[in-house]
Amino acid sequence: MLEARNLECTRGDHVLFNNLSFTLSAGELVHLRGSNGSGKTSLLRILCGLFMPTNGEVMWGKENINDLREEYYQEISYFGHLNAIKDELTGIENLKISSKLADIELSEQQALESLEKMGLYGREDLPTKFLSQGQKRRVALARLLFSEAKAWILDEPFTALDVAAVDLLQGLITKHLENGGMVILTTHQDVALTLGNKARQINLDS
C-alpha cells in the first residue's frame, strides 16, 4: 500500500499543495486532477522519491520510501513526460535496456513480440530517431507490458497517442488493476478509464 502523509510542496514562495494525505491500495486507480501548474507532476515525482516534499512523507507499507530506496524502486514503475529512450538505439534495444534496468531480462523474441503488440510492426529495427513522437511513446510504453512493479505512476501517459494506442494502454492498466496492481495517473484527456466511477479522483485545485 502506498500512502502519502501530510504532503506539502512549495516551488519558490508558492505553495502548490499542503496537508495532502491519501492512500493507494491494491487494485485501485487514482486519477490526479488539477489545472496546469497545480503540482500534479511534482506530486508524482514525490511519490517516486525523485523529489523531496517540503513537509510530510511517503510510506510504502509501513516504511518511509527514503529508507527503502532500491527495495521500493523495485515496486514502482514511473512513466514521466520524457520517454527515456535513446534516439540512436532501436526499439528492441531500448526495450531490452529499460526492462533490464527494472531487473527483468527479455529475450530478443519477447521484445520483438511486445513491440508488435504495441503496433510497431516492421519498425522494431529502426533507430528510434526515425520514429514519430507517438511511435516513440509506444516504444517507451512497451516496458509496461512486462512490468512486475506493483505501483504504476503515470504522468500524462495518453499524450501523443492515437485512439488505438490509448485503448491499448487502457487495456494494460485495467489488466494491471485486475492483477492487484495500483495505478496513479494524470491526464487532461477524457478516457473511458477515468470517466466512470472506476477511478478515485484527487483534485489538487480544491
Binding site: 517516486c48 522519491g49 532500491e70 514511473y78 520524457l82 527515456a84 529512450i85 535513446k86 534496468l101 527494472a102
Partner: peptide, 18 residues
C-alpha cells in the same frame, strides 16, 4: 547530458539497483 535530457537518468535513479 543526454541521459538527463531524454529522461533515462530519472529511470536510472529509480532503478532497483544502487
Amino acid at each position: 547530458a543526454s541521459d538527463y535530457e531524454d529522461g533515462t537518468l530519472e529511470q536510472m535513479v529509480i532503478a532497483p539497483y544502487p
